[in-house]
Amino acid sequence: METTALPQQLAEIVDDFQALSEPDRLQLLLEFSRGLPPLPAHLLDHPELLEQVVECQSPLFLTLDIADDSERSVSLFFSAPPEAPTTRGFAGVLQEGLDGLPAAQILAVPDDVPERLGLTRAITPLRMRGMAAMLGRIKRKIRESGAA
């Protein structure tokens, strides 16, 4: 599997998934769903700052902050209810895989990353679309902010 183009922290996650059997990949996704960090206080108080990704089967809200440093490093924030573990799992993978990276590096992440997790058969292509949509939304928000 071609992972050289991925940022290191995301490539490690992809490798972890690839090393497992299909049922264990689902368990790993479940762990990511449990590990998704809660929203920081400034967003809990201002839910209107979050944007819904409607392509996800369950409600998923995300937003990002771009630092005023030379790299324009990006902080990612996600919110999804516990009744939506698959959606939370996708968010957890993107959070751990992309959080803190320079804007340009996130924009360079290939759009087919969700397919590289090896979950498509077990999760189905329809459901994987939600994760692709999240990645697309993150990139769009970065572009709209003019950070690239």
């Binding site: 689902l26 368990q27 698959t86 959606t87």
Partner: peptide, 22 residues
């Protein structure tokens, strides 16, 4: 369920899972 992982987060004791898609 719609969510393919929801059963794994906890289900009624003894219940088996059937996924609509897979």
């Amino acid at each position: 369920d719609e969510d393919v992982l929801l059963y794994e987060t906890g289900h009624i004791a003894g219940a088996v899972k059937i996924d609509w898609h897979t």
